[in-house]
Design a protein around this nucleic acid. Structure first.
Lengths: 222, 222
DNA sequence: CCAAAAGTGTTGAAACTACACCCATGG
DNA sequence: CCATGGGTGTAGTTTCAACACTTTTGG
């Protein structure tokens, strides 16, 4: 068999960059890391790195996630691939961006080192490279996913109160949904099942729910 | 300034592959080209090729489109990036897939050569590499876009009859939408304006419409 | 006058919005 | 008994789905 030499071409470098979302104190945050190398050394940027020749894109993203957060099982989805010629001063670098949802209560969760921090999401974050664009894009996608799929549960512990779920939607959409309508809508989807009650709280204890096992991906919540 | 040598890593090859949709005789087709090289030489596959070191991903996709169809201005959108380690027998090849919508009535449209053909879309196309997966993914995205955005007009001539627009939705969704409800819905969106009447047809002439200039991207049609 | 495609309204069902008060618990 | 957050129903409005006949034109 003739195998043409596809390696004659000058090749770009391929990286992955990840927007890691989590809820900290009820607010939406993303993980940033302090860059250890030029360019933009010392600045806070999205975690990411080179794709090894023997790992798939998703494997590369998972490897980075594990390194930075210690968390293995989480929601991970490809976002978009950014390939402008001059997006990186070191040369031609194409980056495949991903976003991930991690549950901050996860017991395995721990930031790798002092060079990582959770930052409140807002659309005016100033980040190096085209990372601001990537974050804004991730936020759009996250909202879309929340609206049409049951992805929200990835940001919550296994069992949760409906008020926590509503709070999550409130934060993600920067709205204050109507409590009664929200609960009505969610329950009508039949994707939740009851999972006991809150205990020893200083007020009426809330019912707990969990997501059913095989819930369909498209729901249409908002 | 210190510029670390990011070129020490073994680098993958990056290509673009394009799913080019068009409507031929009222049916949804995609463009396939006959491969001139191994692997899968002689088989029909998606048009695509290497990304040059000095062009963006989108430029690469546009270049390929122009080569294959002669059409310059069209709807082009990135789909997904496929990066499994063994997706190409020649070595590590990452492909950024795009889809494009071309209006088959476009006067610039002409297939480049005998090595290209329009093929009726169905979900059982057997194509080399992971191209079948890419086509199915493109079809999903196309439906979503049709449902929520006014992208359909990219597949029609500048002015068109509502029955043509409905026919397009019928094909894309493999349904037969109700004529009255469809027209009601489309007109209620106020994204169309009247543009005269059909002439010299053997039946009642239809009103023609065109898409307004600045229509918002999200509509919710179906 | 015939064939062909265009055009046009109504009704019942379902989904959505807005809105305010009582309940259960711990301290 | 008080403070805190949990829980619940209705009515008006809008959107959606189903459905069939008449109109205009050229031949």
């Amino acid at each position: 068999m003739v195998i043409p030499n596809i390696h004659e071409f000058e090749k770009p470098v391929v990286t992955v960059d990840i927007v890691i979302f989590s809820i900290i104190k009820g607010k939406l945050h993303i993980l940033l890391v302090k860059r250890k190398e030029e360019p933009s050394k010392g600045e806070w940027a999205l975690p990411g790195g080179f794709v090894k020749i023997q790992e798939s894109l998703e494997e590369a993203a998972k490897r980075k996630l594990l390194e930075k957060t210690g968390v293995k099982d989480l929601y991970l989805e490809q976002l978009y691939t950014w390939g402008d010629v001059n997006r990186d001063s070191r040369g031609r670098v194409i980056t495949v961006s991903y976003y991930a949802l991690v549950n901050a209560q996860d017991k395995n969760m721990q930031l790798s080192d002092e060079g990582a921090k959770w930052t409140l999401v807002n659309t005016n974050l100033r980040l190096p490279f085209d990372h601001s664009k990537i974050v804004n894009y991730a936020l759009k996608r996250l909202r879309w996913k929340f609206e049409y799929t049951p992805v929200a549960f990835s940001l919550l512990p296994k069992t949760f109160k409906l008020s926590e779920l509503k709070g999550l939607y409130d934060t993600v959409f920067e709205k204050d949904f109507d409590k009664r309508n929200f609960i009505k809508k969610i329950l009508s989807l039949k994707i939740l099942e009851e999972a006991g009650k809150e205990e020893s709280v200083a007020n009426r204890p809330a019912k707990l729910y969990r997501a059913k096992e095989n819930i369909s991906p498209i729901i249409g919540i908002v």
